[in-house]
Design a protein around this nucleic acid. Structure first.
Lengths: 118, 118
DNA sequence: CAGCATCCGCCGTGATACTG
DNA sequence: CAGTATCACGGCGGATGCTG
């Protein structure tokens, strides 16, 4: 069900549209790096799902995993350049959400502020 | 399972992350407006899903529906201002897809071009 | 042409329990 | 702490058939 593999928009969507993924990237960008830390921050996520997301993003080269051979074991995750390159999208989505999905603006024919968008 | 309703990023994601939605918005932006036209363009979509998407976007105020009382019936869809405000996000996703998901750039530590991002 | 109704299969997600 | 294994469920999306 690839929808359209040749479409760059879809390829990007395939990566970031899974549940929790955007939040995860946001938290990673904000400096959260350890498994339990992310687990707490993304309240409600199951360890299984968090693990799946982290693994998938790692395989995409969006997240880097650093293991420290200590006891107790410590693992830290961080965004790669490819991961940080997603942040403008996240920011745009935040801006859109704030402008158009803030409260009761569902009519669509009034623009709350300016829609200049450089 | 609202993940986080208070997060504008998530509210935006809830809208555009459904399957076909991004393609649909893109096609609408490119001028395609009739049901059968969209159905052909989004090859593989079922009329049910297209209808669901269109309705959902209409309820969000992202798409406007114009009915023409003719025989055979004609209906045209178009993006509202709120819908057009999504295009920067789509563009960013396209840009990201082209830069980072083009072919074999999954390592994440080489940036294909510049990552300036205004 | 532009849909809606129904049925069904799939898989993404969550819950829980266990391991190194 | 940092996960994995297993199970079960819910809902999305597809297929088909019919209507105005």
């Amino acid at each position: 069900m690839p929808v359209d593999d040749t479409c760059p928009v879809c390829r990007t969507a395939d990566i970031i549209c899974a549940k929790w993924t955007l939040l995860l990237i946001r938290d990673l960008a904000e400096g959260r790096s350890r498994f339990c830390e992310l687990e707490r921050s993304l309240q409600g996520i199951s360890p299984r799902t968090l693990s799946l997301r982290l693994r998938a993003l790692e395989e995409e080269g969006i997240v880097e995993r650093h293991t420290f051979p200590e006891v107790p074991p410590r693992v830290e995750y961080a965004l790669t350049a490819k991961g940080r390159a997603l942040l403008p999208i996240v920011d745009d989505m935040r801006t859109y959400g704030e402008r158009w999905l803030g409260a009761e603006c569902a009519t669509g024919d009034e623009q709350p502020v300016a829609v200049v968008a450089a």
